[in-house]
């Protein structure tokens, strides 16, 4: 007997307000493995879902510090160690003149960390995801709002979860295969 693997149940909501109310209700009911989808970020949704703060800031801080130290090390080693050039009688390690390049490298490394760190935290690029199978999900990037509850949630029971979402205003409820 082959058993189908399921991703979870996905429902559509019409407004940001109903989506947020639904997220709050799920959080208060004890659900943790659920996700909301919207065409733009909805303010207050992180609290409504009970999420912690993003860790991205720490990644960028490390990146910026790496950029700063690499740039200083490069300029010190090339100008004051490997090949000393006397320019206008200035000290070989003239740190004042090294500020612009150090700053630019710090910004460059931080920006790379911000973008690639964001993608890594989001597990992107990931061109396939089960939620795309929902028959109306193509509107999620335009004007519609969706909510999915993952089968991995301890409270997940297909029928009960679906009727709970229905009671919160969810429409077009579909059980999605993984």
């Amino acid at each position: 007997m082959s058993k189908k693997q399921f991703f979870g149940v996905v429902g559509e909501f019409k407004t940001p307000k109903s989506l947020m109310k639904a997220a709050e209700a799920l959080r208060d009911a004890g659900y943790t493995q659920f996700e909301t989808y919207s065409p733009f970020p909805i303010h207050g949704m992180d609290d409504a879902m009970g999420l912690k703060h993003s860790k991205l800031g720490w990644i960028v801080l490390c990146g910026g510090f790496t950029g700063l130290s690499c740039a200083l090390a490069l300029q010190w080693w090339t100008s004051a160690v490997d090949y000393k050039l006397t320019i206008s009688g200035k000290p070989f390690f003239s740190y004042q003149a090294f500020v612009p390049v150090t700053f630019e490298c710090m910004v460059l490394f931080s920006a790379f960390c911000a973008v690639f760190g964001m993608l890594a935290l989001n597990r992107l690029p990931k061109l396939y995801h089960p939620v795309f199978k929902h028959s109306r999900f193509h509107d999620a990037s335009s004007h519609s709002f969706f909510l999915s509850v993952d089968v991995k949630d301890p409270l997940y029971k297909t029928l009960e979860t679906a009727s709970f979402l229905h009671g919160l205003g969810g429409e077009n409820l579909e059980e999605i295969e993984d």
Binding site: A23, E35, T36, Y37, S38, P39, F40, P41, I42, M45, D46, M49, L51, S54, L56, G57, V60, P100, F103, E104, V107, S110, A111, A114, V115, G117, M118, L119, L121, N122, L124, P125, K126, L127, Y128, H129, V131, F132, F137, A140, S141
Partner: peptide, 30 residues
């Protein structure tokens, strides 16, 4: 990149956007 508008993604996305803005502001002056 398979963007699906998930709120956990928007959370990191908005953070990244804000950090990039904070980096680009002194950068453009520099």
């Amino acid at each position: 990149l398979g963007w699906r508008g998930a709120n956990r993604h928007w959370q990191n996305y908005e953070k990244a956007y804000m950090i990039l803005a904070a980096l680009a502001a002194p950068l453009v002056l520099s």
